[in-house]
């Protein structure tokens, strides 16, 4: 989908004055010299500053000392849980606000005899990336080449394979969303943006950090992404339009309730202490600075290639159709091959 933006910018036509893009894209746009920096205009808006936004979402727009984007929201892949089932099979799991893989395993074992699934095997990309980061895995060492086929990648897949083999997760072909919705699944990792769907459930449910290795919050990782405002280069954008854009972004900063109501977390901290917002499930991620620090945006330049590859191959490994080693090799080769091509093309 996103490949369309570059062509539009290049043709110099039909450029909207302000665009909303995903955080992972910004490096690529900047590398292609497509973005205008906000630096000149920020002087008039002292409130648009780091301390008023979630740090992770704010930092993304800062490249080589210049500001290329301003954050709208930060959307996180976390975990829904069925309160009744947690009470029954894992009464202590929620004590510290972190559910570890070990706790999930134990709950799943206990629930097995009642044909209740412990954990839903959901979207591969964020599940893989957040566990990989918990093991200390890095997607790249030098900023260009990908590093997937390593010990951390192996541990990540092994964890999921072991859980699948032990029978505590949703099975191949089963729909984890459906299982959760019908009250047959305890833990269901999904994005905060899926709240409107989960709402239809007929039982009490809650939201908590994605599955973690350790119950130490400072080590927790929750995969996140962020919608960011960028200005693509355009001849049509005059000073008046730019002014209007800045006014709009400043306005959004203090009027983010509507965005929050749709289930998202605004990147602006303006409504952090708002009573209505605090009642919303997703607000747990913003409430404390420690919790904010768990949100990680994977902004590797070739994130798009990694995403396509993970979504295509990780399932084969988890469901035992392809060995862990081969899966990692395939993904490493696939992504690196595309990177090499892109690098060669840019020369």
């Amino acid at each position: 989908m996103y490949t369309k933006i570059p062509t539009v910018v290049n043709s110099g036509k039909n450029i909207p004055d302000l665009n909303i893009v995903h955080a992972e894209r910004i490096k690529q746009y900047k590398d292609n010299n497509m973005l205008i920096s906000y630096d000149k205009y920020l002087g008039d808006y002292p409130e648009i500053k780091a301390s008023n936004y979630v740090t992770e979402a704010w930092n993304i727009g800062d490249l080589d000392g210049k500001r290329y984007s301003l954050p709208l929201d930060i959307h996180t892949f976390q975990m829904y849980y069925n309160k009744d089932l947690v009470k029954k099979y894992a009464p202590k799991a929620l004590d510290d606000n972190i559910v570890t893989f070990d706790e999930i395993q134990a709950a799943g074992e206990a629930a097995k005899k009642d044909k209740i699934t412990g954990l839903g095997v959901t979207w591969f990309k964020p599940n893989f990336l957040s566990l990989y980061a918990q093991y200390g895995g890095k997607l790249t060492k030098n900023g260009t080449d990908v590093t997937l086929d390593n010990a951390d990648g192996k541990k990540t897949l092994e964890k999921y394979v072991a859980m699948y083999k032990s029978g505590i997760t949703s099975r191949d072909g089963q729909d984890p969303a459906q299982l959760f919705q019908s009250g047959k699944e305890i833990f269901y990792p999904e994005g905060i943006w899926m709240q409107n769907q989960v709402k239809a459930a007929k039982f009490e449910w809650g939201m908590i950090n994605a599955p973690q290795l350790s119950s130490d919050l400072s080590k927790a990782v929750n995969w996140s992404s962020s919608h960011q405002f960028v200005m693509f280069k355009s001849k049509d954008r005059d000073a008046a339009k730019t002014k209007a854009i800045m006014k709009f972004i400043a306005w959004v900063r203090t009027h983010s309730q509507e965005w929050a109501k749709s289930g998202q977390n605004p990147a602006s901290l303006a409504i952090k202490d708002d009573a209505a917002y605090k009642k919303m499930g997703q607000s747990f991620l913003i409430n404390t600075p420690e919790e904010q620090a768990t949100m990680k945006i994977f902004d590797y330049k070739y994130n798009g290639f990694v995403a396509d590859s993970l979504d295509k191959h990780v399932g084969d490994a988890i469901f035992g159709k392809v060995s862990i080693e081969k899966t990692l090799q395939t993904m490493q080769k696939e992504v690196q091959g595309k990177i090499d091509k892109d690098q060669a093309n840019k020369k």
């Binding site: 989908m1 490949t3 570059p6 396509d308 979504d311 084969d316 159709k321 595309k338």
Partner: peptide, 26 residues
């Protein structure tokens, strides 16, 4: 989605992903 193990990944899927996928276009 082309699986299991890429056994139903047809050429048009690769063409589409390389040209218009989530990463840089090839």
């Amino acid at each position: 989605n082309g699986g299991p193990d890429s056994s139903t990944s047809v050429l048009l899927m690769y063409i589409q992903q390389n040209a218009f996928g989530s990463g840089q276009s090839i």
